[in-house]
Amino acid sequence: MKVAVLMKRVPDTASVFAVAADGKSVETGGLKYVMSPYDEHAVEEAIRLKEQAGAEVIVLSAGPPETKETLRSALAMGADAAMLVTGAENAGPRGLAKALAAALKRMAPDLVIAGKQAVDDDASQVPERVAELLGIPHASVITRFALSGSVATVDREIEGGSYTLEVPLPALFTTQKGINTPRYPTLPNIMKAKKKEITEVGVAELGLGAGDLAAGMAIESVSLPRQTRLKKIIEGEPAEKVRELVRVLRETEKIL
């Protein structure tokens, strides 16, 4: 069985963000980059399948050359091979999904797993688009995955509950936190990962043209959310503090 994992290199969201001079992007100078946290769950789930059922795990990303570092960390977790698609850096979610789908067509995986969203643009749509482009069934935000023969049973989250679904492979799923705890790479695995292959493929080679990659969505400006909290510490004896809190919530804030 062949399992493909989609992943993205993103800035660590613990970073401090500042608006860049163009007003349309953020300063990238001081940012530290990591694998998007939800993708770690996707990699972990794939590696478990490798351990349980001997699956071959291939990680796939589109991005700048530095993305290789991120792919390398997935290899260190235990993935077998990696592929980097280049030339789609300026595409929107529509074009990015086309590039990834074209790469996946070549691999013909039985299963595709991706994080539910990448915490940079938070576009939250690329995996679903990939599945639609490949014409395979899919389900998002899963918190449980079990495989029996060629049918996956998954729990997918909904507000205030969950659905249990049966989905025949080949299929695509996006992972939510809670599905597993991603492992840390061990030193021997980090060493092994250095020798594993990362294939690079350009968008032209995948048969994509400018029309496929043109972005039909653009950021016109970015801003930092207004964050002026009152930061009022209420003093007094416990009972007084509570009475005062309830009073301001009622009278000043009109919440209660």
Binding site: P11, T13, F17, V19, V26, V119, D120, D121, D122, M217, A218, I219, E220, S221, V222, S223, L224, P225
Partner: peptide, 12 residues
């Protein structure tokens, strides 16, 4: 919201 809500983007 982008970057996990730390930045807001105005899009077209």
């Amino acid at each position: 919201p982008i970057y996990a809500g730390k930045v807001l983007a105005d899009l077209r």
